[in-house]
Design a binder for these strands. Structure first.
Lengths: 363, 363
DNA sequence: GATCAAGTCTTGATCGATACAGTAGTGCCG
DNA sequence: CGGCACTACTGTATCGATCAAGACTTGATC
């Protein structure tokens, strides 16, 4: 047998089995498990004893969930694979926040898989036995959004994209990005390079021209690019001359590769703005490989302010966003609920955290 | 309304609702969703259209799970809170391994909450709608084991404690610990201090005397202490003179506090052996605070070889164990199953990884 | 023209519990 | 001694689907 097949040997034991043997009703047996003080303690003990003797596995959770209409689990959906989600520091901070809220409310977490087979990932969301969803940063055209809309469960969207009826928690990405660019402009930088994570859900890696930027299906990415562009425009600099390198995953290695491409251009940018700290740390590496001093020769600014940012060499200037807080709030929103037809929308603040990876532009 | 109450406005829509409206049977409607090629494409389209029009949320996952006897989720149970599990690098590596296996098999992950209220944590395991469990390192007297035994689902125990009928994946903790101690002994150390994580599930923090060591309910902890003791005994050193500090959580701060207590003793140990890398990193901090040079004045050895070990200052000597691999194997075992009554038991190897935090004993 | 297979749909049973309403029996009160 | 509350239990309906087996068409086959 494989482990998921039914136990071959033992006959199935249900509440009814026990009820029959003791000449009581199914309901009474059910109460013995679920409502201890609705029946005589002696009888209850008898029932529990017999249950153990017969190897009764306890009330079937699926049946219970069906009847009660409540599962005790919160679903969490990430844009990328689970393997990746439990690796990415930003995703983990969010997850931790959600866990704080769910654990306080005695709720379990259900994490959606993103198998190689796309259909399976969609089916998983359709079949999730949960009481609500927290959805993290999906692309606008992610097919799972459709399913979520159909299921019409309580849902909290974190970061993006808006979903009718769902609550929303996010930051002002455009303002955050703008603050990053303004910081660099104030330091005298004029030649920039940008490292982004995906602009669309299509596995592309490489330079992102204006057309691709305009066609982005990931709202966050659009907003951040717009924020950078806002700042440059305000300083009278043309955005269309700024090289943008898109990466597939939010990882140090991706950032290093993308930054390498930027640094090998001529003229070389004097400042690199990255969509995340991991990508920025990759940029630091690319600079180190080329013998560039940070911040004397090159300034690098990240986004998020994950713990590793402060530990980087040099410590990373970045735009802090409250990831843990976002998770906590998302979880609590879901658990507390909201007035019908008035899903709340929250925008949390970002802060520019200036450390040692940015400095005056080289002459 | 709060979000978890039933949608007040809309009347409930089920398969039957749709079937009635179209004058077909429930089953046909069911097939329209689940078995597309068992009915006329035109009819199927009609059904799907009407479903959308009526706002049918799709086949109820709980009902489906009940009928099919399969949920598509794997349960994962950690000893500590979920909040802690998604923070601890070792737990996360394991989780990532499990995710690799589950995602490849299109299975979701269900993470058990450990709410402040102990009963609730037990109930959560009882009510988990899953097809099997991976259980990580519980204390022998953890009440959830009882529930797991009753539920009699396919279960894989990682590290400890043995559970009848369950598969097992672990390492030889005793041998690993022994190797650590032997390494230090070979370097000439004679005065040791030990920093452990919990020996029992009782929130104790502080020195652990021989009585407490003997009463430990956490098999791993017993095994590692025994391993250290083996090595010392072989070298003719008395174990009962070795101070052991127990911590509550596997965290840097705990390690620092425990190591501080050890380092403030006189005579001071020349070597600290820690049950984990995080605790060892805490010991490095305690040493730094006291102006002790590592390894000139003090040697420190960890356990696990998490990524942070190699990045520590100085890089940490440690006993590597294949955490990711353990997760992968646990997941795969669970998914592949095993012959009835012959649950597999696997012991993976550990390796001593010598870096810069250990050196010859000071004269 | 009977037989068969494939395709399409239906019926009835079933998964395993909990909710809800109702029925005895018991004890206490005035 | 009637009335009332309380405890302990029962019976039926229900949660919302899927399964297994069978029935009816239709067209092809010999």
């Amino acid at each position: 047998m494989t482990s998921f097949e039914k136990q071959a040997g033992r006959p199935r034991v249900t509440l009814q089995t026990i009820a029959d043997r003791l000449q009581v009703s199914r309901t009474t047996v059910s109460n013995a498990f679920g409502k201890p003080n609705q029946l005589n303690p002696a009888l209850r003990q008898q029932i529990l004893d017999l249950a153990r003797e017969l190897g009764y596995p306890g009330p079937n959770p699926a049946a219970r969930t069906l009847r009660r209409g409540r599962s005790g689990s919160l679903g969490v959906i990430f844009p990328e694979t689970l393997v990746y989600a439990v690796t990415d520091p930003a995703a983990l901070l969010l997850l931790r926040g959600i866990a704080e809220a769910s654990e306080a409310a005695r709720m379990a977490l259900w994490l959606a898989p993103v198998p190689p087979d796309r259909e399976a990932g969609i089916a998983a969301v359709r079949d999730a036995v949960v009481d609500g969803f927290v959805v993290y940063s999906l692309a606008e055209d992610d097919a799972r959004l459709q399913i979520l809309a159909e299921r019409a469960m309580p849902t909290v969207i974190v970061d993006e994209p808006p979903l009718p009826g769902a609550a929303f928690v996010g930051i002002d990405d455009r303002a955050g990005a703008r603050a990053a660019a303004e910081h660099l402009l104030a330091l005298g930088h004029r030649r920039f390079g940008v490292v982004t994570f995906p602009l669309a859900d299509d596995d592309y890696t490489g330079p992102a021209d204006l057309a691709r930027q305009a066609a982005a299906t990931i709202p966050i990415s659009r907003a951040r690019l717009a924020g950078y562009a806002d700042a440059l425009a305000a300083a009278g600099l043309p955005w269309d001359e700024v090289p943008v390198q898109e990466t597939r995953l939010n990882e140090v290695a991706s950032g290093e590769a993308a930054a390498s491409a930027l640094l090998d251009r001529s003229p070389r940018p004097t400042a690199i703005m990255a969509f995340s700290d991991l990508l920025a740390i990759g940029a630091l590496r690319a600079a180190a490989t080329r013998g560039l001093r940070v911040p004397a020769d090159l300034s690098v600014i990240g986004f998020d302010d994950i713990p590793a940012a402060a530990m980087a060499t040099p410590p990373l200037t970045t735009v802090r966003q409250p990831l843990l807080e976002k998770g906590r709030i998302a979880g609590r929103l879901l658990l507390d609920g909201w007035p019908a037809n008035q899903p709340p929308t929250l925008r949390l603040p970002t802060d520019l955290v200036v450390r040692a990876s940015t400095g005056p532009a080289p002459p």
